[in-house]
Amino acid sequence: MDNILEVKDIGKTFQVRSLLGRVKGGVSAVDRVSFSLGAQGTLGIVGESGCGKSTLARLLMRLIEPDAGEVNYRGRNVLDLSGASLKEVRRQLQMVFQNPYSSIDPKMSVLNNVAFSLWANGVSRQQARKTAYEYLDAVGLSRTHADRMPGSLSGGQRQRVAIARALVLKPEIVIADEAVSALDKSVQAQVLNLFQDLKKEFALSLIFISHDLHVVEYMSDEVMVMYLGRVVEKGPTERIFNHPAHPYTRALLASAPSLEVDRAAGSGAPALSGDLPSPLNPPSGCRFRTRCPMATERCAMETPELTAVGPGHQAACLLLKESLTA
């Protein structure tokens, strides 16, 4: 599978200022994150709230400017582009946001919400509305919904509008940031199946961000696990869920509710406990060490790097590296 998106060592630190405006520290929201996305593949990004998932998504879209790194789309570094060149690439990378109640304009009709992106890119209003009808139909909304205002729609219907708006520019990559977390479980299933169908119909590549492990497992070909801004494990979905290597991944899986009592991925692993440390003052060395039952003194002194633990499978754990080299 050819990679269409290559992200290299991207990072972002937000300055924290006092009431007098003095810089008193920084929050390392995303720290040297690297990954690739294949054509028509789906990368799932998972982790607790505050791990940097949403910040990473906004960095990829340049809604936030990164401090370092590269975002290469088909060989072009998006971070070096501006003006018409950036606008051209942005058409190929679209985003579906978490909250369907705030991500679409409540003062515009459903049809105009979807057509607006086309107008902004020079398409005539007549043609834009015609195309918008087609994409509303593709996401399962009828023409009777098109003239309604967003306030009259359910959460699932609003998210379908947001998906249609993302697709109307015919992007190659869609970033879904917690796109089903605000929906009821029954509606979640409908929207997830819709994503799967649209991925095939429009030959899409997806970056699917969620804190729900079951959703990530269902949607993804590959999974990347983040903790306090860093990648702690990544690899094929089957390996991540059946042979998790990092203590954090194993703890997440053990903490996730499941009807499978003897599920191998979580068996024997302690459930996740304790609170996420403050990103203002993250632990030295391995950032997970304050919650890791296997942590040693070395974990406080050295920062682990991603190490190969299987085909396409990497994890960042000093103890794991020791066992592999022993």
Rank of each mutant, 00 (worst) to 15 (best):
L63H: 06
N77D: 15
A128C: 11
S103Y: 13
V139I: 09
A138E: 01
P150T: 02
Y135F: 14
L141M: 08
V161R: 06
V96L: 13
K107T: 12
V114D: 01
S102R: 10
L86N: 13
R160F: 00
N72Q: 11
S102G: 07
R74Y: 15
G69C: 13
W119V: 02
E88F: 10
P150S: 02
R143P: 02
V123H: 08
L60M: 15
D137T: 06
I64L: 14
V71E: 02
R125E: 00
Q157G: 03
G155C: 11
Q92G: 13
N112H: 11
M95T: 08
I163W: 04
S154P: 04
L167P: 03
Q127K: 15
Y135D: 01
Q94P: 07
A146S: 05
E134I: 03
P100D: 06
G122Q: 10
G151V: 07
P66V: 10
M95A: 07
V139P: 04
V139S: 01
K170Y: 06
N112W: 06
I64D: 09
R125W: 00
S124T: 05
P66H: 11
L136D: 00
L86P: 14
D80I: 12
V110D: 06
A162F: 02
R160N: 06
H145V: 01
A120R: 15
D147W: 00
S103W: 13
N121M: 06
A115M: 05
G155Y: 01
Y133T: 01
Q94E: 07
S82L: 13
L136Q: 03
Y135S: 02
A68Q: 15
S117E: 08
L79V: 09
Y135R: 04
